[in-house]
Design a protein around this nucleic acid. Structure first.
Length: 536
RNA sequence: GCGCCCGUAGCUCAACCGGAUAGAGCACCUGCCUUCUAAGCAGGAUGUUGUGGGUUCGAGUCCCGCCGGGCGCGCCA
């Protein structure tokens, strides 16, 4: 990064502090002020160290400013004392211009970093039972998990997307029995699956098919295809059943036993999870000899740890109770529980024109994810699910998300991209050729709209790192909305080609257009949303 | 009863590690198309951040207590 880089400024601040004999107790914090007139960067170091140094914060800050001014920092136009003791930095336009070269050089790797250093991250998400189509309740976790995977990959992790298939146990058998019953023209058994899709699938099932295997394959195909339509492709579909064959479950149970963290009681085998922070011990093998759900899940996580350095397991709100016991189980196996992250996605309430839409339609039938995608489109589906922090409950208005109007944020952002593309088309049509960036002087970019676009671009790197490492994809969505606003403003007030615009300005602006295009394209791409050339 | 998440403008939501005057969009009102898409731009109004304490230079953010909502608390998954 260019001289706007925080590390350089932090070093300068450290030097200036040393020069006035102050030793900071912690790291020097540098933040981007919320308000424009507080400059481009700001540090609270004087406030933070004043107490330890037994100094008045404002006086200390004044000394710091003086010391910084004496150092006459490259690219910094002004250093100012403000408020109770903040020190604000104002950059010269020339250092703001550098972001354009940075973005253009980076291209599609704009915002990428090497934080991960090739560390292997396994992201498990969706993991729905293979007993029917994916429904609306799966959508948020699907969009979230995939986007977290994209983000981590962008900052240098080696990412595997994984789907765990619960393909054994009572649920599957009930599903198979329900299919068989419908095939025979009968009602599903007591407690069976009663959805319309069972009737439809049974009708499509060949007479000689095994309902269990056929239904399993049908459900997987169905889930796989709707996910693919959303741009979500898993690297691995991990079968629970396969662990019976490989003996992985028994191996995991033995490993726990060897570590002395299991015991027998009441005819069952227990995991002493309370030793690792759980509020009660958990049964692994029931007194009838069957595994609880936990045993294969532990074996599965153990397997993932053998293949990856960090695990992420995206869960729905109704499974949050699972977090502590799985971490306990991993710790019991000698893994570092901090290497297992289990983000919880809170529930989504669906609305249409202000009225709540119930996720369950008829008995056994839920609103399918495919229906949502069909109604509002892939881009709007992903963008809308990624609009907010998943730790908050979400209200999702289908009518709003499907509207092509300006009240739909996804089109607002895409429109900004289409407009940039339109400028390039227009330039080509009138025969204006863009010169190589190395030959273009960016100093004509002094309009407040232009500066705002560049300032926003300069924040992207840190937003991506934050969004990826804290699993906060909505930070990218928010950035895109703000950036798009800056781009629309620039578009409106700064004509790029046309009469009365100096050729030098046109050249500089064409490169700002290019940088903006990259910013929008990369940001949208991280969310899995397309960046259209036109929106007609 | 215990645990997790949430409570911010009329509505939907932001707010990086505790920072300066809590921000956007929608809805409402007013302007702007004779050069690149008006799916846009500009301006206006909107707040006891559920509530009561505490911590400190500074709290929407951290701690404690209440109120309200969601989800869990099985030898189900």
């Amino acid at each position: 990064m260019p001289p706007m880089n925080r590390d350089l400024l932090i070093n300068a601040i450290a030097d200036a502090l040393a020069a006035i004999g102050i030793e900071p107790d912690g790291a020097i914090e540098l933040e981007r002020p919320a308000q424009r007139d507080h400059g481009d960067w700001s540090t609270n170091i004087a406030l933070a160290t004043a107490k330890g140094a037994a100094r008045n914060p404002r006086e200390l800050a004044a000394d710091l400013v003086e010391s910084l001014e004496a150092a006459s920092l490259d690219g910094v136009a002004k250093v100012e004392l403000a408020g109770p003791g903040f020190v604000n930095f104002y950059l010269e336009n020339a250092s703001i211009h550098d972001i354009v070269r940075h973005v253009v050089d980076a291209g599609d790797s704009f915002g990428s970093a090497d934080i991960g250093g090739g560390l292997r991250v396994n992201v498990e998400f969706v993991s729905a039972n293979p007993t029917g189509p994916l429904h609306a309740g799966h959508a948020r976790g699907a969009c979230f998990g995939d986007t977290v995977a994209r983000l981590l990959s962008h900052i240098g992790y080696e990412v595997t997307r994984e789907f765990y298939i619960n393909d054994r146990g009572v649920q599957m058998q009930t599903f198979a029995d329900s299919l068989a019953a419908r095939k025979a023209g009968q009602e599903p058994p007591e407690g069976g699956y009663r959805g319309q899709y069972i009737v439809d699938w049974a009708a499509a099932m060949p007479d000689d098919a095994d309902p269990f295997e056929w239904g399993y394959a049908r459900a997987l195909d169905d889930q796989r295809s709707v996910l693919a339509s959303l741009g979500i492709v898993f690297d691995r579909w991990f079968s629970e059943r396969s662990m019976i064959e490989t003996g992985a479950i028994e191996a995991a149970l033995s490993a726990l036993a060897e570590r002395g963290v299991t015991y027998e009681a009441d005819g069952a085998r227990w995991l002493a999870s309370t030793r690792f922070g759980d509020d009660k011990d958990r049964v692994l093998v029931r007194s009838n000899g069957e595994y609880t759900y936990l045993a294969p899940d532990i074996a599965y996580h153990r397997d993932k740890f053998s293949r990856a350095d960090r695990l992420i397991n995206v869960l729905g709100a109704d499974h949050h109770g699972y977090v502590v016991r799985m971490k306990a189980a991993m710790e019991a196996l000698g893994e570092d529980p901090a290497h297992l992250d289990m983000p919880i996605t809170q529930l989504v309430k669906l609305m249409r024109d202000g009225e709540e839409v119930k996720i369950s339609k008829r008995e056994g039938d839920l609103i399918e994810l495919a229906e949502i995608v069909e109604e509002i489109g892939v881009d709007a589906t992903r963008f809308t699910y990624l609009l907010q922090s998943v730790s908050s409950p979400q209200t999702f208005d289908l009518a709003l998300a499907s509207s092509r109007a300006m009240d739909n944020p996804v089109y607002y952002v895409q429109m900004a991209h289409a407009r940039m593309a339109g400028i390039v088309r227009n330039a080509t049509e009138v025969g204006t050729e863009r010169l190589p960036l190395a030959d273009v002087d960016l100093s004509p970019l002094v309009h407040e709209r232009e500066l705002e676009v560049m300032r926003q671009l300069a924040t992207f790197d840190e937003i991506v790192v934050l969004a990826a490492s804290e699993h906060l994809p909505h930070r990218v969505t928010t950035w895109l909305r703000e950036f798009a606003a800056a781009v629309h403003g620039f578009y409106h007030d700064c004509y790029v080609v046309g009469e009365g615009i100096e050729p030098e300005l046109t050249q500089a602006r064409l490169w700002l257009v290019e940088a903006s295009t990259i910013g929008l394209r990369v940001g949208l791409g991280l969310l899995g949303v397309s960046a259209p050339e036109e929106m007609r």
